[in-house]
């Protein structure tokens, strides 16, 4: 899928200092990865990252060292959630009541597990179907390789919450995969 930049000319960039370039810019891919997985759309991700980078530049004076990746990802996340509430598309407002989503970890079929190990497309699909807070947990842990502590810092949650989110996210992901695999084997099994 080609990344299509919006046709409208971007707003003028403020001057970028050498320290910002050295400390923050190396994490532009990380910022994009999180924004793109949250927004599930190139154009929206573009808006989120652009806005987040502008905020990062504005608040860079208040960055007191530490992990710039965690700092930037927290900004990306906040930017995404504020932009989302401004224009709330229905499908993004899935309620997430942790008590309703009881942690019932059924065993997946062996067939499903064998298939998922080889099919990136199925994994991507299943991950995109997860509700945002869970998708975020998986993306930060498995793709961005953050520790629980880093995820807690990025999302502003307690470590215990990170742990339970991640546990539920994985159970749900396994479930989604079983569904995906079920559908795939109905249609075509190459």
């Amino acid at each position: 899928m080609p990344n299509e930049a919006p046709a409208a000319s971007p707003p003028p960039q403020p001057a970028i200092g050498a320290r910002f370039e050295a400390v923050v810019l190396p994490w532009l891919d990380a910022a994009w990865n999180l924004a793109r997985w949250l927004a599930r759309d190139d154009a929206d991700a573009q808006d989120v990252v652009q806005e987040a980078m502008l905020r990062a530049l504005r608040y860079f004076d208040s960055f007191r060292g530490g992990d710039a990746r965690v700092w930037l990802l927290a900004i990306v996340r906040n930017t995404y959630f504020t932009m989302r509430t401004r224009t709330p598309p229905g499908h993004l407002l899935e309620p997430l009541d942790e008590d309703v989503h009881v942690l019932s970890d059924e065993q997946a079929s062996p067939e499903a597990l064998t298939l998922l190990a080889v099919d990136v497309g199925l994994l991507r699909q299943a991950l995109e179907r997860l509700p945002p807070p869970w998708r975020e947990a998986i993306v930060l842990r498995e793709l961005e390789e953050c520790s629980y502590k880093e995820i807690a810092a990025i999302t502003g949650q307690r470590i215990g919450t990170v742990m339970s989110r991640l546990a539920r996210a994985r159970v749900r992901l396994k479930l989604e995969l079983t569904h995906c695999v079920g559908e795939a084997s109905h249609h075509d099994l190459r």
């Binding site: 960039q13 810019l25 891919d29 990252v49």
Partner: peptide, 14 residues
């Protein structure tokens, strides 16, 4: 699965 920022975005910010 990891999404990398488009080249144009890197350009704009570097």
């Amino acid at each position: 699965l990891y999404r990398r920022a488009p080249a144009a975005l890197h350009e704009r910010w570097t």
